[in-house]
Nucleic acid binder design. Structure first.
Length: 564
RNA sequence: UGUCCCAUGGUGUAACGGCAGCACUAGUGGUUUUGGUCCACUCAGUCUAGGUUCGAAUCCUGGUGGGACAACCA
């Protein structure tokens, strides 16, 4: 009787958009944009922003541009723009137009002339130190520059000469004339242009003056007809300035009514990692990780190399939601999202990370048989494969205990277990070396249990993964753990930095044995190593030199119980 | 001695003046040729003090707590 459809709950941005649609605020379709600065690699926090703007565009039948905010030539590089484009496409999004703020330098310059002519901007000869000291503090008003009231003609002349390269870096700036006593520091005559005789990755040496973020961003949105300009919370105090520039440049009532509006949401934070571009850059440059795409990095490239899928990241972005309050997401949610996706799509395979040799005493010498194994129990369409079985095999060292506790379902002296897709085996003898370390197990198998079922119906509690010693392939396996050992890597003792919280065991490398099927894989292919976790082939893996990265372990309720 | 933003289970996020819901985490049980998956269940929340109202997580006021703002960075 209660057939109410589940109420769709909107986040505050969707609610605003639907209100704009209802009130017909915009005469055209909705337009979004994702505006990275090409000065580093994108991370999972950017992925949230990308999913937001591109996702909204898709949901409301609008478009989303990719715009590189390239107004600071000394920090920006082509390598970064290529990586960013790559990441966005990999995530599964397609931008409408590929834009660059540098495409608008000419227009921005013309608008600067307009503002000076209107008496809304001026050229300032003050030094950086003077400007900083005259700006005041958040609690004290600033004071006006001596150049503030210089004649319009003089500012115009100076601006032209700045552009022509007549002045050295730092000798002059263009400032908006707003209010040095404003409680908002950003309104105290903010700088619009600075002189930088630097090579720009797109405009080369055409310009030696470059606009500041605040002077460029709103106008770029306006030029692209952006209707909803979404950014993170730290730009909230910039919004009055965003509006001020457009208010003073655009003289058209209708355009102003429909004009782009900035809306801020809380950025993503994840525990056990850092999300600051500066810190990520430091990790790369100082060699604490192997590069921007090191699988321990929270970068999109790192997550990809770790074995995360685009769908898992999109789903994660959806689950964390959009709001304005500060948040720290638990990595377990991210891990849940990959497991959820990989469980559906990952090829199952067997591999042994910490091998213990077993000789099956009653199995014929030299015999090898091919046993049928299911590729993915969650998806019948993925079919089956054949796995070679032989007299000597390897199992996981942790799957045998000489003196097992109660509820231990695995192998122990006299116990019978199932080898997955193979046979029931019983341990008859434990072989040790002089130091008492177990070196080998002697077992017998029940020939009637081929495939893993017993015709007499007897049950075994344990099922182990295994690999044929004769046919297995060697593989280098990278076992990754969290990069930092502290939930909050930013908190550290006096005189120390976040680097002191690096987890010394974030990477453990082992030589493992895997079934021959792995040789058919391509870099980035996903696998589930049964009973162990999800893995993928590294970008540098080849059939003859397998390199496997662990994405995440399987949930392990036995490990939890064993801890107690 | 400022301005602005924010406050719901352990973590996130809904509820738009009318029964505080969902996901993750944790725990219990069931199914299982992965101690996986799946299924069922359990623990657990409106920062505080007033006010408005028949009725407040929601509106108002004051506290408290957290965050942002003083690059010629974005």
């Amino acid at each position: 009787m209660n057939q109410e459809e589940p109420v769709k709950s909107l986040n505050f941005i969707e609610a605003m958009i639907e209100e704009d649609i209802r009130s017909k605020k915009h005469s055209g379709s909705l337009q979004f944009r994702f505006p990275p600065e090409p000065n580093g690699y994108l991370h999972i926090g950017h992925a949230k922003a990308i999913c937001l703007s591109f996702g909204l565009a898709a949901k409301y039948k609008g478009l989303c541009n990719l715009r590189f905010d390239d107004t600071n030539p000394i920090k920006e590089e082509v390598e970064y723009v290529e990586a960013i484009k790559d990441n966005i496409q990999w995530l599964g999004f397609t931008w409408d137009k590929e834009c660059y703020t540098s495409d608008y330098f000419e227009q921005l310059y013309d608008w600067a002339i307009l503002l000076i002519k209107k008496g809304k901007a001026y050229v300032d000869d003050s030094s950086a130190d003077e400007i900083a000291s005259w700006r005041g503090t958040p609690t004290q008003p600033g004071q006006e520059s001596p150049c503030r009231n210089r004649p319009v003609e003089e500012s115009l002349d100076l601006l032209g000469r700045m552009k022509n390269g007549e002045f050295p870096d730092g000798s002059k700036v263009v400032r908006a004339k707003i209010d040095m006593a404003s409680p908002n520091m950003h309104m105290r005559d903010p700088i619009m242009y600075r002189i930088k005789h630097a090579h720009h990755h797109r405009t080369a040496n055409e310009w030696c003056i470059y606009p500041m973020y605040d002077y460029a961003h709103g106008q770029s949105d306006y030029i692209e007809n952006v209707t909803h300009s979404l950014c993170t919370l730290e730009f909230e105090v910039h919004r009055p300035l965003y509006d001020w520039f457009l208010d003073n440049i655009i003289d058209d009532e209708k355009v102003n009514r429909e004009r782009t509006r900035q809306t801020e949401f809380a950025r993503l934070n994840l525990n056990y990692t850092v999300m600051s571009k500066r810190m990520l850059l430091q990790l790369v440059e100082e060699g604490h990780v192997e590069g921007w795409d090191d699988p321990r990095m929270p970068t999109i490239s790192g997550l990809r190399r770790r074995g995360y899928t685009p769908a898992s990241i999109r789903n994660f972005a959806d689950k964390v939601g959009i709001a304005k309050r500060e948040n720290v997401i638990d990595v377990s949610l991210l891990e849940h999202c990959v497991r959820e996706d990989l469980n559906k799509i990952a090829q199952r395979v067997m591999g042994v990370l910490d091998p213990l040799k077993i000789t099956i005493a009653n199995y014929p010498d030299g015999q090898v048989e091919e046993l049928e194994a299911i590729n993915n129990p969650e998806d019948e369409r993925m079919g089956t494969r054949r796995v070679p079985f032989s007299k000597t095999i390897y199992i996981e060292r942790a799957d045998f205990m000489e003196n097992p506790p109660k509820k231990y379902f695995r192998l122990s002296p006299g116990a019978e277990v199932r080898l997955r897709y193979a046979y029931y085996i019983t341990c008859t003898e434990v072989v040790k070396d002089a130091s008492g370390t177990i070196t080998e197990l002697i077992c017998t198998y029940d020939t009637a249990t081929r495939g893993g079922d017993s015709p007499d119906g007897r049950k075994v509690k344990g099922t182990l993964h295994w690999v044929s010693a004769e046919k297995a392939l060697k593989a280098r396996v990278n076992l990754y753990d969290r990069l930092f050992s502290l939930e909050d890597p930013y908190s550290c003792a006096e005189g120390e930095t976040f680097l002191s919280n690096l987890n010394p065991n974030s990477l453990e490398q082992v030589e493992a044995f895997v079934e021959p099927f792995l040789a058919e894989g391509q870099p980035f292919d996903h696998y589930q190593f049964e009973r162990l976790g999800y893995f993928c082939l590294d970008k540098n893996s080849t059939p003859g030199n397998l390199v496997v990265n662990r994405t995440v372990t399987l949930r392990d309720s036995w490990a939890k119980q064993a801890e107690k």
